[in-house]
Design a protein around this nucleic acid. Structure first.
Length: 324
DNA sequence: GGGCCCGCAGGG
DNA sequence: CCCTGCGGGCCC
């Protein structure tokens, strides 16, 4: 096999991953022979999360409107013409868009009301699991997990402070040399970015390329405090993460982890970053994922392991598996 | 699909 | 008030 070209970036990425791997091994979190689980969920573009509800609803929702046959078939904005394809309903017109929209809105609202309480003005920050949102709970957006209190910041990946530590964090990709073994992972700190632009070209960004070293402040400091206190950190994984444990869509609460170690090193940008190792706390509900059967050396693309979001634990608000 | 830039929650 | 951030919607 001819050695194919490896870009300097890729070379550094592999080197950093090797460093991360060595540290996980030194902590006894992975063995020298353990294989990094490969991503099974295919990478796909995030769904357009429109406010308006698409006519092409999951089967469960459509059944609710059975009998409501409307001759005036609407066409939604994308030009999709609703037709009913199941044997039972073949040939019948779909209910009107307005009817579907109303029913679905009401159902979603009713479901939300049982799960989400009104958010008080000054709710306290808490460690550990949030009642009503067990391991495996799925959120469509960061805003929903904020309302639930599972991970409160709407953009930032780390929630914490310098006196209590870190309450929660989100793995969302964006740092391509991090490793995710499910039971443990490495996580890059925050900061080192220029979000305001220059004086000549001012900006108002929420994210930007790294342009300076990270510092041990804010979220990074919070995580270092958590390493001392050993308090549990709530962990969510987001759809943008590139690992074997990535949810297909949205965000999934994956349980409590503890911070085992951190260090300062050169990130992929060339600027300094803080790296953290977290590992799953024992004595909690089992993780919401299933690993591929052992013996598979993670090269086959055969889907031995269907998507993790099919594993029943998730409390979906909209996305049921489609039966037809 | 990529670039731009907004509201938002949280903390100082 | 200020500043920050592993979102996200919109426009091209």
């Amino acid at each position: 096999m001819a050695g194919r070209y490896i870009s300097p970036y890729e070379e550094k990425r592999l080197k950093n991953m090797e460093e991360n791997r060595r540290i996980l091994e030194s902590l006894g979190l992975v063995g020298p022979d353990s294989v990094k689980p490969k991503r099974v969920v295919k990478k796909k573009a995030p769904l357009k999360r429109k406010k308006t509800i698409h006519v092409h609803m999951p089967a469960k929702k459509v059944i609710l409107t059975d009998g409501l046959v409307d001759e005036q078939v609407d066409t939604d904005q994308d030009g999709f013409t609703p037709t009913r394809r199941s044997a039972r309903l073949r040939g019948k017109a779909a209910p009107s868009l307005q009817e579907l929209r109303t029913e679905v809105d009401e159902e979603l609202e009713a479901e939300r009301d049982t799960r989400y309480k009104p958010v008080p003005k000054d709710r306290p920050n808490v460690f550990g699991e949030i009642p009503g949102f067990p391991v495996g709970t799925w959120f469509e957006t960061r805003m929903e997990s904020c309302r639930a209190g599972v991970h409160r910041p709407t953009v930032a990946g780390i929630h914490g402070n310098d006196y209590e530590g870190c309450y929660s964090l989100v793995l969302s990709g964006g740092y391509e040399d991090d490793l995710d073994y499910g039971e443990c992972f490495t996580y890059t700190g925050e900061g080192g970015r220029d979000l305001k632009g220059t004086k000549a070209n001012p900006k108002n960004l929420r994210t930007a390329p790294q342009s300076k070293d990270q510092t041990l402040t804010r979220g990074n400091l919070a995580l270092s405090v958590s390493m001392e206190t050993r308090r549990p950190v709530r962990v969510m994984r987001g759809y943008k993460l590139d690992s074997a444990f990535t949810p297909e869509e949205g965000y999934r609460y994956d349980g409590l982890y503890s911070v085992d170690k951190f260090w300062f090193t050169a990130g992929l940008s060339g600027f300094g970053v803080y790296k953290f190792v977290l590992s799953r706390c024992p004595d909690q509900a089992p993780p919401p994922w299933t690993l591929p059967a052992s013996g598979d050396n993670s090269d086959s693309d055969t889907d031995t392991n269907k998507a993790d979001s099919d594993s029943g634990v998730s409390m979906t608000t909209g996305t049921e598996t489609e039966a037809d």
